[in-house]
Design a protein around this nucleic acid. Structure first.
Lengths: 249, 249
DNA sequence: CATAGCGTGCCACAATGTGGTACGCAGCTG
DNA sequence: CAGCTGCGTACCACATTGTGGCACGCTATG
């Protein structure tokens, strides 16, 4: 709407985060902006402490320490983080697969907030801060299924991007799937977004049943046995319920 | 220098992080800026996904999940953050003292990245995001001891500020101490920076032995027994080694 | 030795952000 | 219940502010 320079600077900051360490020239190619504009932005962000020059190659920029003062606040946001930690570890111990906690980001996607790793040599990997689409992941389905119809409509109004043959791109099919998710209490995703990965997720709800987050167990195809699905789903749903209970306590 | 609106927006973002959930009025008092300016800034940050309205009180603002996508190099990849959490909790359980994870910030200081609290009524406290000098803290020594000679020289070239009688301000003495730290595998700090606090720290290393971070246990003088030092040091070093191993896995 | 890419600086222009002001709306409070 | 306060939102004339084209010096690279 406004504050063009601010919006653009934040975009640059995100781009640096994704491509760090990155040079001015690379950023000008990404954004198609004049070099001097990009450089001025970088200098400004640097002076504010959000960026810094790479130590080994001072022509490259990377994220500075200032974010560390803000980042944890985002994690602890709803104290959900602390409530989720122990149940997640217990779930990991029960199934020995990687567990993720994700929160919806303004109906635009799910953001990984915390992770508990399993000890298999082959394991799924999503870094804290990674984002994924709402309509094509188990965590996203778990959250969407417990939103109001108007909000679901809002999401399905956008074009549902496909990431492969399994992605549900039809709004009607998605709504049907969300109904099933609501009934059984957990969502399942297989090859809808990333390939070779299966994920089972359940929502963490607030007092008024609005979804705050989703817990998910994700595992590589090689270890996925369809027969285990009901048991895994039950465990994930129980974990999510326990986090909900702890969070409200 | 320039980009006034950008600098100010980032200040606002940091203020929201410190005071969240916060209203427009509170922020105008903090900054002494016109209400419309502050509000415009908040709306812009919100549209960019960096802020969001509080769910219970929509007039209050808090940090959005977008911030998580921006992470320093040290936290990139197989997030150090996630790798460190469980070992830190175990160390806390073993010693029942507060544990800190810190990363070096461009050789200018250590920044606290994560914390696991003990349950004593009297405990040390360093907020996440706090910075401390490299040459006068256990965490700083742990990192410095595993840097190359040129980098150590670079740090000792600056004036080593004193924070009391115990601070090592002589470059030669500091290098000698760093040698001892390297030998025994952990660093000890008593009253070098903050008074009444003792800290024991060990480094988390990367594959090429460059230090990425330091784990530290810190405790008030009242509970510090010199006889426990070797045991505490061993535990901290083991924890750091485990984080290193998990991080590389 | 030429080239490419970097950081840095300058500057006229107008697009951009500014901030005073005002309105409608909740939730308190006397 | 009327008054108050603090919120979100909006408008708008002004000039501060950011813009982006250009050019310089530098350092690696081929």
């Amino acid at each position: 709407m406004e504050m063009k320079s601010v919006t653009r600077s934040l975009r640059v900051l995100e781009a640096v985060a994704r491509h760090q360490p990155v040079t001015v020239g690379e950023l000008t190619k990404i954004f198609g902006l004049p070099k001097s504009t990009v450089q001025r932005t970088l200098v400004t962000l640097n002076e504010a402490g959000w960026l810094r020059a790479n130590r080994k190659d001072t022509t490259r920029w990377e994220i500075g320490a200032r974010v560390l003062a803000v980042r944890p606040v985002a994690l602890q946001g709803s104290s959900l983080f602390a409530a989720a930690r122990e149940p997640m570890i217990r779930l990991r111990d029960a199934v020995n697969e990687t567990i993720h906690l994700s929160v919806p980001d303004a109906l635009q996607g799910m953001v990984v907030v915390d992770r508990v790793d399993c000890d298999h040599a082959v394991r799924t990997f999503h870094a804290i801060g990674d984002t994924s689409p709402l309509h094509a992941t188990a965590a996203g389905h778990a959250v969407l299924a417990h939103l109001g119809k108007s909000e679901i409509a809002e999401v399905t109004a956008e074009t549902l991007e496909g990431y492969g043959e399994e992605t549900i791109t039809d709004p009607g099919q998605l709504r049907a799937e969300l109904g099933r998710v609501r009934e059984r209490g957990y969502a399942v995703n297989h090859n809808q977004y990333l390939h070779g990965i299966c994920a089972i997720a359940a929502p963490v709800l607030d007092g008024d049943d609005t979804p705050l987050a989703a817990v998910a167990v994700s595992l590589p195809d090689s270890r996925f046995e369809p027969g285990r699905l009901p048991e895994l789903g039950r465990l994930v749903a129980e974990t999510a319920a326990e986090i909900t209970a702890r969070h409200l306590a």
